[in-house]
């Protein structure tokens, strides 16, 4: 089926325009999916296993190319980018995996510094950035630990720190809480929210409904490769607006 695609992508952070992805086996992972994500949004991809969440992640990092339609990041149609430009794209769209994908023979600090080494940063830059990231993910003091010495939640935080190392524009967390207990999952969700507040566009694939209720963000519901629901893109509150809201809440509580 031929679909119409826009000749030029817009300047949204991410745009999926009538995207279909069919695997060589004939199985359709995505069917005619369209959505736009603006810079600074936090979006949940919700759906059961096989809904197409990971396929979206793979299309965004150009591990896959769509069978039909167009995928664009920052206005650039990913089908048109050269193979040599893919590493740069992957530094702009970082991924956090359910199974952390940490290198077992490297320490926490070495795992976090890997993308910085890849980006050819100096040793001083790497040192200072790793220290900042460890502080952000609350793992200061554990830089010399090996992944095997960490809990699931800690390992996932290392994975998030690594994904943030080169300052990506988009962070895609693919079921980051899938292997974690409830408390750790909440902690990871809050950490991702914090990262979002700092200005990164965050996409999170999950089927944990508690997290949706906790963060109350835009949700894209997928089922069998189809986009079945897109909750409206709620206007994000700025940190100042949040503070004002908190103050008002406290004021109300004070006055009974």
């Amino acid at each position: 089926m031929a679909t119409e695609t826009k000749p030029f992508a817009s300047l949204s952070m991410i745009e999926f325009n009538r995207v279909t992805k069919q695997y060589p086996t004939g199985q359709a992972a995505l069917s005619d999916v369209s959505f736009v994500i603006e810079p600074g949004e936090f979006v949940f991809f919700v759906g059961p296993t096989g809904a197409g969440k990971t396929t979206i992640m793979k299309l965004l990092t150009r591990e896959l190319v769509p069978t039909e339609g167009m995928v664009a990041v920052l206005g650039e149609n990913l089908q048109n980018i050269k193979k040599s430009a893919v590493p740069k794209l992957r530094r702009e769209v970082s991924v956090v995996f359910q199974d952390y994908k940490l290198l077992p023979d490297r320490t926490v600090a070495e795992n976090i510094s890997l993308p910085l080494e890849i980006a050819n940063k100096t040793e001083d830059e790497i040192k200072s950035r790793v220290a900042d990231l460890l502080e952000l993910v609350n793992l200061s003091g554990k830089e010399l630990y090996f992944p095997v010495q960490l809990s699931g939640g800690e390992a996932q935080r290392v994975s998030i720190a690594r994904a943030l190392a080169v300052g990506p524009k988009v962070l895609f967390a693919d079921e980051p809480t899938g292997n974690l207990d409830h408390e750790s999952a909440i902690a990871i969700a809050k950490l991702l929210d914090k990262i979002h507040q700092l200005g990164t566009t965050v996409l999170m694939a999950t089927h944990n409904l508690d997290l949706l209720k906790l963060l109350k963000k835009r949700e894209l519901h997928l089922d069998k490769g189809k986009l079945v629901k897109d909750t409206k893109a709620t206007k994000e509150k700025s940190p100042k607006e949040r503070e004002e809201k908190e103050d008002k809440k406290k004021e109300n509580e004070k006055h009974g």
């Binding site: 990092t61 590493p87 992957r90 994908k101 290198l103 993308p115 890849i118 690594r162």
Partner: peptide, 15 residues
Amino acid sequence: QEIGIMRLLGATSWY
């Protein structure tokens, strides 16, 4: 496995 992870982190072919 390490190579796969490096690729996803944006490593170039030369790296």
